[in-house]
Simulated assay, not measured.
Amino acid sequence: MSESNKMSGANRAILIAAFVLLAAAVGYAVWRDSVRSTIPPAVEGGAAPSDQLAELEARTKREPDSAEAWTALGAAHFDLGDFGGAAAAYEKAVALSPESAGLWSALGEARVMGSNSDPMPAAALEAFNKAIALDAKDPRARYFLAVKKDIGGDHKGAIEDWFSLLADTPQGAPWEADLRRTIEQVGQIHKIDVTTRLANTQARPLTANEMPVAARAIPGPSRADMEAASQLPKGQQDAMIEGMVSGLEAKLKANPADVDRWIMLMRSRMTLGETAKAAQALKDGIAANPAAAGRLKAQAQLLGVPGA
């Protein structure tokens, strides 16, 4: 009997919904309600998805050796539900950047989502195993490998792995709530009591490198500022946000050694859904501050910046 037949369609649907939520929260599969995050500045705005894809495809032709270009194309295909196209692009990306655990796990996810029969194709499992070999802490690969256990009938083992992932999850990480929900749902499906353990399990404290910059030393907007901004029309809000981000970029041009501002720029881009620009900010920040590469990458991973 194939593994795909070992669980009901309803259970599979619940699992799919759960890990789609998690992967989206982790940020590697990026904001699925829009492809704006992967669009170069020249084509942002009112372009149709087909035009956006055409520009991204044109970029890969101009820059065939750019893992970032292929990653952006893969993310755009994934956002549009074209998982086969996403997998093909991610395959190009990992060939160019084979040491990126995040790219391997993104490829694995695309292969899972593109499979109509097997909930964990062998090619997807291979990609997740490569991600884990590169980074044993890769959260998405760990998550999907636990899904593999659950599909294979080892429900308790899967739940144990998810609890282990939860224990390694930094406080406030964007995937924490969805991971807890997955544990709860799978426990309910298979009549495994996880309620007390979930209630008693706390995410680990943030390390210094993981502590969000805005919470550590850089002042943010006051409550009054936020309330005032919320009353503005959407167009004015967008203009305000763009002005703030442009101001950050201008300050970084004047002082590229300001590591905190690079982190703030990544955070701003991720908040706007501009993940390709966030990835570029990480790249530029490391180029300007090679001694701070570890800190920049740690912050980028917390924010869910692709390729961090």
Rank of each mutant, 00 (worst) to 15 (best):
G235V: 04
F163K: 03
Q188A: 14
W162G: 04
A48V: 10
D178E: 10
R36V: 08
F19D: 11
K6D: 11
R62G: 02
S100F: 01
S268R: 01
D225T: 02
T196P: 05
L198M: 12
A13P: 02
S97F: 04
S246D: 13
I218R: 15
I151Q: 07
P40Y: 13
Y143R: 03
I189L: 15
E109K: 07
E91V: 05
I263G: 00
D178H: 11
L179W: 12
A106W: 06
H155S: 13
A167M: 13
A88G: 06
A177Q: 11
S164A: 15
L179Q: 09
P306L: 10
K61T: 14
L296H: 05
S4Y: 08
S268G: 03
W31E: 09
G157A: 02
M7S: 10
E274R: 05
M1T: 09
G307D: 12
A48Q: 12
D260W: 00
S222A: 05
K6T: 12
P290G: 10
T38K: 06
E44F: 04
N289L: 06
A281M: 00
I263S: 01
N289P: 01
M113G: 02
A24I: 12
I14N: 08
Y143L: 12
V20H: 06
A124L: 01
L206Q: 02
G285C: 04
L145I: 07
A292V: 03
F83H: 15
L15E: 14
R111S: 07
A48S: 14
A254K: 03
R12P: 02
V213L: 04
I14V: 15
T207P: 06
L15C: 09
L22F: 15
P98Y: 09
L302F: 14
N11Y: 11
V112K: 00
D82V: 04
E68Y: 09
R140P: 00
A278P: 02
D168S: 13
A278N: 01
A23P: 00
R36C: 04
A29E: 13
S115P: 02
H77Y: 14
R261N: 08
P256E: 00
A257N: 08
S37I: 05
D178L: 07
N11C: 11
I159M: 07
W104M: 06
A95Y: 08
F163R: 02
L303V: 08
N209D: 15
G114C: 13
A23H: 13
G243R: 03
A136S: 07
T271N: 09
A75I: 10
D154L: 04
V259K: 00
K6Q: 15
K251E: 10
L73C: 03
P98H: 10
T275Y: 09
E63S: 11
P212M: 06
W162Q: 03
N255F: 06
E68M: 10
A110P: 00
A95E: 13
T60K: 06
D161W: 04
R180I: 08
T60N: 04
L206K: 10
P212I: 06
A254M: 02
S4M: 07
Y28K: 02
A76P: 05
W262P: 00
G235S: 13
A58C: 05
A29V: 14
Q202K: 13
A214F: 14
S230D: 15
E109D: 13
N129H: 10
K92P: 07
D65K: 15
R142N: 06
I192D: 06
W262V: 01
E109S: 08
